[in-house]
C-alpha cells in the first residue's frame, strides 16, 4: 500500500511533467492498486515561478569598483541559504566568494592584465555547466542537472559524502560539511533548510527563489554587476549583453560549458 502510493504519485508527477492526461494515468493506477485514498492528487509549478530553458549569469567586471560590492553578494547569498561562518579556514563553506582574476582564470591571466582587472576582485561560484563533470562523477545522482532549466542541483538527502564531485569540479565550487554547520549560522533563515554534517553543498542559482518568481539573492544586491536570465532566449537580457560585449568563461578548454560569463 505504501509502495503503491509512492509509485502512483511518482507516475502522476512524471505524467504531468510530460503533458499526458495525468487523470487517466492516476485512474488506471488507482484501479490497478485498488487504492481508495485521495487518488486525484496532482503536482504543479507555482504560477509566479520564473522559467527558462538554460539559466545563466553575466558578470560585468567593468562595473566592479570595490570589494564591498562582492561582499554584499556573498552576505546576501550566505544569509539566504544558511551558510555557516566557520572559523577554521579549511572547513569553510562557500557558495559564492571573491577572488583575483589570476585565480579565477589561472590559464588566461597574463603578466599584463588591464589595471582595472588586476585591482578588483571577481565573484566566483558554481558555473552550472552544460556538461558538468561533478554530475558525471556522483555515484548516487545526489548531484544532478535539471534538464528543464540547466541548473546543477544538490539533493542533500541523498548525498553520501564521498566527495567525488569535489575532485571532479575544476572550479573548486563545492564545499563539504566537515562538521555540524548549525552552531555556526549567525541567523537562521527558517524558510530554507540547514544542512547536516557529511554532505556536499554549493550554489544552486537560488532555485527556491526562482520558484516563487524572485531573482537570485546575489543578483538582487549586485548594483547591476550581475545579470541573470535565459541563455537560450535571444531576447533575454543576458543574451543581449553577450551579443554586445566580449565575455569569457572559466576554463572553457575543459569542455564543461560554464553558464557564468564574465565581461572583461
Amino acid at each position: 500500500m505504501e509502495r503503491s502510493r509512492r509509485e502512483f504519485l511518482k507516475i502522476a508527477g512524471a505524467s504531468a511533467a510530460i503533458g499526458l492526461g495525468a487523470g487517466q494515468v492516476m485512474e488506471a493506477v488507482a484501479a490497478a492498486t485498488n487504492h481508495q485514498a485521495a487518488p486525484e492528487a496532482q503536482v504543479a509549478h507555482q504560477p509566479e515561478a520564473l522559467k527558462a530553458t538554460r539559466w545563466g549569469m553575466v558578470v560585468d567586471t567593468r562595473k566592479i569598483e570595490s570589494a564591498e560590492q562582492i561582499e554584499k553578494m556573498v552576505e546576501a547569498c550566505h544569509k539566504e541559504h544558511n551558510v555557516p561562518m566557520l572559523e577554521e579556514e579549511r572547513h569553510r563553506i562557500k557558495w559564492i566568494w571573491e577572488t583575483h582574476f589570476h585565480n579565477a582564470f589561472p590559464s588566461q591571466a597574463t603578466d599584463r592584465v588591464s589595471e582595472h582587472l588586476e585591482h578588483i576582485l571577481l565573484p566566483v561560484m558554481c558555473n552550472h555547466c552544460e556538461n558538468p563533470p561533478c554530475v558525471r562523477a556522483c555515484p548516487t545522482k545526489a548531484t544532478f542537472k535539471r534538464e528543464s532549466d540547466g541548473i546543477v542541483m544538490m539533493d542533500f538527502h541523498r548525498c553520501i559524502g564521498c566527495r567525488f564531485c569535489m575532485a571532479a569540479c575544476p572550479y573548486g565550487s563545492r564545499s563539504f560539511n566537515f562538521r555540524d554547520p548549525k552552531p555556526f549560522i549567525p541567523e537562521i533563515n527558517k524558510a530554507y533548510p540547514t544542512r547536516m554534517k557529511g554532505v556536499v553543498e554549493k550554489c544552486n542559482f537560488c532555485v527556491e527563489r526562482l520558484a516563487v518568481g524572485k531573482l537570485p539573492a546575489c543578483v538582487e544586491v549586485s548594483d547591476g554587476i550581475l545579470t541573470f536570465g535565459d541563455l537560450n532566449d535571444p531576447e533575454s537580457e543576458v543574451s543581449k549583453l553577450l551579443k554586445e560585449n566580449y565575455a569569457i568563461r572559466r576554463k572553457t578548454n575543459l569542455g564543461t560549458g560554464p553558464s557564468v560569463y564574465y565581461i572583461v
Binding site: E2, R5, R6, L9, K10, G13, A16, A17, A37, A38, P39, E40, A41, Q42, V43, A44, H45, Q46, A49, F144, R146, S148, D149, M153, D155, H157, V207, A211, V212
Partner: peptide, 29 residues
C-alpha cells in the same frame, strides 16, 4: 487518518518532486 499513517510517504514524494523535479505545488484530491 491518512496523514496520520502516511505523512512520511507523502513527505518522501514531496521531497523528490520538489528537489529533483522542481515542481513546488501539491494539489490534493
Amino acid at each position: 487518518d491518512e496523514i496520520r499513517t502516511e505523512h512520511m510517504q507523502l513527505l518522501d514524494v514531496w521531497r523528490d518532486t520538489q528537489v529533483r523535479d522542481g515542481q513546488t505545488v501539491y494539489i490534493n484530491a
